[in-house]
Design a binder for these strands. Sequence first.
DNA 1: GTGAAAGCGCTAACAG
DNA 2: CTGTTAGCGCTTTCAC
Lengths: 335, 335
Amino acid sequence: MHVTIKDVAKLAGVSPSTVSRVIADNPKISDATKKNVYKAMDELNYHPNAIARSLANKSTKILGLILPSTEEDIFKNPFFIQVMTGVSHYAQKNGYYILYTYATSEDEELEHLKKLMFSRWVDGIILTTIRKDDKCIQYLKENQYPFVVVGKPESTDGILWVDNDNFHAMYTVVNQLIQKGHRKIGFIGGPHVLNVTMNRLDGYLRAIENSGIQVDEKLIMRKEFTEEGGYEAMKHILAYDHPSAIVTTDDLIAFGALKALREEEIDDISVIGFNNTPLAAYQHPTLSSVDINAEKLGSFAARLLIKHLEKKDDGINSYIIDTKLVERESSEKKK
Amino acid sequence: MHVTIKDVAKLAGVSPSTVSRVIADNPKISDATKKNVYKAMDELNYHPNAIARSLANKSTKILGLILPSTEEDIFKNPFFIQVMTGVSHYAQKNGYYILYTYATSEDEELEHLKKLMFSRWVDGIILTTIRKDDKCIQYLKENQYPFVVVGKPESTDGILWVDNDNFHAMYTVVNQLIQKGHRKIGFIGGPHVLNVTMNRLDGYLRAIENSGIQVDEKLIMRKEFTEEGGYEAMKHILAYDHPSAIVTTDDLIAFGALKALREEEIDDISVIGFNNTPLAAYQHPTLSSVDINAEKLGSFAARLLIKHLEKKDDGINSYIIDTKLVERESSEKKK
DNA sequence: GTGAAAGCGCTAACAG
DNA sequence: CTGTTAGCGCTTTCAC
């Protein structure tokens, strides 16, 4: 019923394999027959059947994307959307499609991952989050399935990954604050099971120590990645002391901290967020935040994976994406 | 190299066709052999090859999603993300994957649409936007390809679609304002080539006329769907008169209008947005806006398409999704 | 109920 | 350079 390679072959007076070669742009086909075949193709309005090609080729030119999602909101977290944007651009430009699934827990994620792998729909997989002793990574590795992960895994051997230098990013931020004269700087981070939190905390500690300031454990809080977490942590710190600046590991936390400060009518404490989410510019005061370039994380992840799939590995199996502090009102010089 | 249906057949001591029937859960297979085959399957850790199935079946259980995108920002417009969320949930729950492409113009969109169609990757397509004399719709129709569109097409015969009742939504909003005592109500809409704009304008006009108020053409403006557009339109209206309320057809427009009012230090004009985007709650004053339930638009679109693909059409080929005015400060009673 | 065999549309040796 | 042939892994008549 549909036009196939055979119809084209017949019309062009060649064999199906020749047509196949023309499709694959095989160099050892004479220009004359190529012309011929092309003519037949669009005379018949022929379009290769990608499914059949994939079955024969064992390659679909589709990438799988696994997104974590808290309950019903897959696309609420700006970070993942940005990563997805980067991935999509790079993939589409290079002739790949994206197939995604979302999962609400590590086990579900693994479940979907397996489905995606076994179905053969995708040539490789992009993981957008990374957990301690990540089961997905382990599984993919064991099965030698091509994948790339956004976030630096504990063990990096033979793994493709992209990440920011979280240690360095936080180190720089704290250092700048110290340069500006801040001495008492608080830290509010997310749960310490996450690598990011630990790396950022290390950066904070190093900067403090390097400048000869005494680390004050009571100015260091770790809470959930939520506005409430940030709010409570801030309150807690204020009950103990009055620092001149607070660094956080996430904008959401920073939003909560700002809220606590507003309530207490305190306006001489600088606050710095992380991830530079869209709402940062809409806080009161507008929130200074570290831009982690999530879109770039995505596009470089896609790039690594695609290069690998096409056997064009250039020896590079990871990228460190630059970060940048975006200064807004919340870190302006206080009176 | 990989476990196939033949290996399973051999181990279970049956023929490949029997295994195939077990996979498809064919009712005329004895329970005994079913058990047997299942056992063999997980002894070998067998997983059906979806590509091969698709080639034989002519169905992939993948849906194509076409997203419009202004330049580099596919996922910046909250509307499309919400639609995508709804689509994804419904699809994933029903065993479908989503493959998406984005395009920056109608022609590019058509281009990608064709690729998607001819490749056979997807069983059907979801269009998330609709233009006047939409080429994509026309093409899909001509080729009898299964699709659904978010937005009501000019001609609806034989087309699956979902939309809000834009006329009614705006009618209700304006009516409520009138009930509250407003008499001079301005309208700022997007370009009138778009169906939504026209429908919402009609709702506005009807409400005004029904209440016996004289329509004042000078209070009606149509601009681009941008903050600047809203800003200029508002300034323009203010130069002419001082209405007590302004309705708009998009939050972005409303943001601009609010900005103009802030500049003029006017705080006795109610403003209503449309689409209830996340930033609405972060305006000054916070913006009242009509929630159009974009996620529901998406899930019902997926639902229509999937039912159709599975030949479970229930005679329903469109859905009208409810809207709801979310009231915030910008429409509070003014002194 | 189950098996044999043909075929879905394309690719890839292997010849020539 | 091009044709022949045998699959890729699964489904599906058509027999038995």
